[in-house]
Design a protein around this nucleic acid. Structure first.
Lengths: 145, 145
DNA sequence: ATATTTTTGTTGCAGATGCAACGAATTTCT
DNA sequence: AGAAATTCGTTGCATCTGCAACAAAAATAT
């Protein structure tokens, strides 16, 4: 193919591509901090944070809130439960629901994880400087619907 | 766990989380457009674009440029070759390298795909309005190193 | 020149993932 | 009320993924 007759296209400016690359990079960097040190995978971290900072969320609640497939949530929750970090309790008012809750052990672990996340956030805010506010506005626009 | 003694943490403002959710959403939306209609997966699309818009890139070139694991690139390339969309040629100057090239069939397909990507980009730019410029500045900052 | 190290792409394998199917519980409809 | 449809969480299964191991080639060192 010496003669390519393709429409103009600049991958470097293609927003879905840019977000994907950046998200993958940031997630990988974050994961390094808690994967080997604490044995927590990315979905497990996401579930753990939700259990910690929401009122006994169900699997469905987390799925909706974090855009995490329900099977992913279910399996992450199962692993966290097996490690004694959370508990799963059938909701008496709606017995289809499984309410998740932190154990003391889980709270301890989360208390170690959160400062790592916060300092990572700080380093990003440092890089962004004044752009942080406008970035967040833009993200709000794209995430709103 | 009724008494949680956790540090303050706002997941909704945590940047890695926001990028991950947004990237997943945009990728899924994009994939809908070319997955079922053209049988092209996300990694295949990324490789195809690179082959189309770079000078005979090698697997390594693509890995570096698109932050795509080399095994992922290799397998995506194998699938694309099997479908007759690209060719793989050993570089005579460095026989470790495999130079990828579009076939005519691949160029045809890409010519159908790119307009879809462009119109998706337009819809995002519409949502962003004036924020687009500042968003790109912020992304540049986070992606630079 | 020979030996060592590095680079490139592929592959094997264990684990993760996505999606559909399923059973149980609840809601809605008639 | 009973029947049908919907919701929730789990699981089976085929595929995808990440990572280490590998062979071939090239670059570097001795």
């Amino acid at each position: 193919m010496s003669t390519k007759d393709l429409p103009e296209f600049d991958l470097e400016r293609f927003l879905p591509y840019r977000f994907t690359v950046l998200a993958a990079r940031l997630s990988a960097e974050m994961a390094q901090h808690y994967k080997h040190e604490f044995g927590i995978s990315n979905p497990e971290w996401r579930v753990l944070v939700n259990v910690g900072y929401a009122e006994n969320p169900s699997v469905r609640d987390i799925e909706k809130r974090v855009s995490l497939e329900k099977s992913k949530v279910s399996r992450a929750a199962a692993r966290l439960e097996a490690r004694g970090l959370i508990t799963k309790v059938e909701d008496p008012d709606d017995r289809r629901l499984v309410k998740l809750d932190l154990t003391e052990k889980g709270a301890d672990l989360l208390s170690q994880l959160v400062p790592i996340a916060l300092s990572f956030q700080s380093s990003l805010e440092n890089k962004l400087g004044a752009s942080e506010a406008t970035l967040n506005e833009a993200l709000d626009l794209l995430l709103e619907d």
